[in-house]
């Protein structure tokens, strides 16, 4: 399957899973909101230019916003992590140029620790920004940190499960074809 087709399918699957399943789960606690949809942005191929990443993040977030009736909220958060993504990959990638050998970020292409750091940081930034916008009018600092940390924890758990369930075959790309 081509990268383009794969990512188009992922786009819709992530939106639908978030809207139809995760958003329907009764909150276990007022701090916890399960978010998984932004994993789409973390999984995008390396070779998309930064401009395209920002735009894609915006469109992806906005699509979710249509469903949740919060236009701009998820779009803002997704644009932010899509923009920061390339900097993080630049910092964390191994010495040899992975972009050439592998298509997209994963444990095999980046190594366990760098990939974990990459996911952790972007998840945290996404949640912090999202909750910050959502709670701009409340200003309860305990609430803010509680919600960011609890949601980040739950999201990381969900991402870990997703990574284990769907073993993405990151093929070593050669020019032999």
């Amino acid at each position: 399957m081509s990268d383009l087709l794969k990512n188009i399918i992922r786009f819709f699957v992530f939106i639908l899973v978030q809207v139809l399943i995760l958003d329907k789960i009764n909150p276990l606690h007022r701090f916890i909101t399960p978010y998984l949809y932004f994993l789409f942005i973390l999984w995008l191929p390396f070779r998309i230019p930064r401009l395209g990443l920002s735009l894609l993040g915006f469109v992806f977030g906005l699509t979710l916003d249509f469903f949740t009736h919060t236009p701009g909220l998820h779009a803002a958060a997704c644009t932010l992590i899509a923009y920061l993504r390339s900097f993080l990959i630049g910092l964390l990638r191994p010495k040899e140029a992975v972009e050439i050998s592998y298509a997209e970020p994963s444990v095999t292409s980046m190594g366990l620790m760098p990939y974990a750091t990459y996911v952790l940081l972007l998840t945290f930034v996404h949640h912090a920004y999202l909750v910050f916008l959502e709670f701009l009018e409340v200003g309860n600092i305990l609430y803010f940190f509680g919600k960011v940390l609890a949601s980040t924890g739950i999201s990381l758990l969900l991402i870990a499960i997703t990574e284990m369930l769907f073993n993405r075959k990151s093929r070593y790309r050669t020019n032999v074809a």
Partner: peptide, 26 residues
């Protein structure tokens, strides 16, 4: 240009966000 483009998208997103909440319509 990347940064400018990113900031522009952010501004657009925030603008729709805060406008919508005020007027409940768009």
């Amino acid at each position: 240009f990347n940064l400018v483009f990113f900031l522009a998208l952010q501004v657009v997103a925030l603008m729709i966000l805060f406008r919508f909440n005020k007027f409940h319509e768009s």
